[in-house]
Computed example of a mutant assay.
Amino acid sequence: MPEHTGRRVPPALRYSAAIAGCLLLVAGGLYVLGVVAAYLAPVLVPVAIALLLAALLAPAVQVLLRRRVPRLAAVALVLLGGLAVLGGLLTFVITALVQGLPALREELVRGVDAVVRWLSTGPLHLDEARVRGSFDRLLSTVTGTGGDMTTGALNTAMTAGEVLGQAVLVLFVLVFLLTGGPGIWAFLLRPVPSSLRDHVDVAGRRALSALVSYTRATIAVAAVDAVAIGIGIAVLGVPLAVPLAAVVFLCAFIPVFGAFMAGGLAVLVAFVANGPVTGLVLLGIVIAVEQVEGHVLQPLFLGRAVRLHPLAVVLSIAVGWVVAGIAGALLAVPLLAVLNAGVRSLLSTASRPAGFTGGTCAPPPPRSPAPSSSVG
């Protein structure tokens, strides 16, 4: 019988349908993973925080092990010392922020009022009622529906029991990561086929090295941002220097958005409290600090292994915020850095020529022995 060519599906349509089907499957899988991650956030977030702390504390454990200190004693010393330092730092930052919160809110309201007046009576001549309504909705989102920032934060926070339970889970996971990291990593590698195990092993170690680098760099960059901008605020005589520096330190853990929000808040307070000249000078200081951070500090501390495209950083933060709120925004970039390092390692080993005889995979790049033996 003659072939009915009119009934044949064009190749372009078949290829498009295949690609669309694959995209739908991938999108469905990502959606399911997002729903599961959001549902298990009370468990996944403490585990992720424990991984970050383990990546930060593991080098100190290795230093003590090289000095022939028993592993349990080394882990105990590092935990006590590290948690004391981190706890003291966070206590200082949070205390300064909480004490200055009422005055900071008053300055924020005054700044919003000044902006509303300028938008309504200035050259733009916008409708004052609409502009004020938009800013009031923004303030209610930031400070809470009750109008008090402290009350709003307490209304949206978890209960004390949940916080305590998650803190205990973080400490529990952290202890086991520091004491039995190699065994945990070996257990995770068992289901991997033997032909791929070495490749996955190297990829995991490189991903962990990227996590160590990211954690150190983020803390260093946040400290430099807070100190530099805080000194600028104090020298210019802007009120609430310590609370604003604390806000800068906390917000710096969220790349791009955090620095923008904290710097904008400091500049707004300077405009209202000290006038436009001081505000413009502080704006220049904030821009200079951000430029030093982006072009000097991050390349210096992170290096090539953790370098991420700004678009990827922004999108990952947005997705993390949608999935898990503030915790998701904080953890999105380190997760992306880990995945980026691991995938790059797998692709580099997969692209080796068939005649390669130097082993099943290339040795990982030079790194401190801490992440490979303490956490993973």
Rank of each mutant, 00 (worst) to 15 (best):
A228W: 15
A329R: 01
R8E: 05
L139A: 11
I219T: 11
H199K: 15
G355V: 13
R137E: 15
G284D: 00
I285R: 00
T145S: 07
F260G: 04
V319N: 00
A84F: 06
G342F: 07
G147C: 00
G204I: 02
R197W: 10
I326N: 02
P334C: 04
Y39D: 15
V192H: 06
A103W: 02
L119H: 06
L177Y: 01
D127M: 02
R307G: 05
V69T: 15
Y15T: 04
V32F: 10
L57A: 01
S209W: 09
D198T: 15
L57Q: 00
A207D: 01
L339P: 08
T151F: 03
A167F: 10
L308F: 01
F260V: 05
T91L: 15
A223N: 10
L171F: 04
E3R: 15
V61N: 04
S368Q: 06
A332P: 00
M1Y: 13
R71D: 05
V281G: 10
R132W: 08
L280K: 02
L244H: 02
L347S: 09
D225R: 09
V168H: 03
Q291A: 09
T360P: 02
Q298H: 08
L104G: 07
P2V: 13
V109Q: 10
R206L: 11
A266H: 09
G294M: 12
P334Y: 07
R344D: 04
P366F: 01
S351Y: 03
L56I: 01
M261C: 09
V224F: 15
A234E: 08
L25D: 08
L83Q: 06
P369C: 09
G264Y: 03
P255E: 01
P59K: 02
V32E: 14
V85P: 00
W321V: 14
T159A: 05
P239G: 06
F172L: 12
V306S: 09
V322M: 14
S351F: 05
V170G: 10
F249P: 03
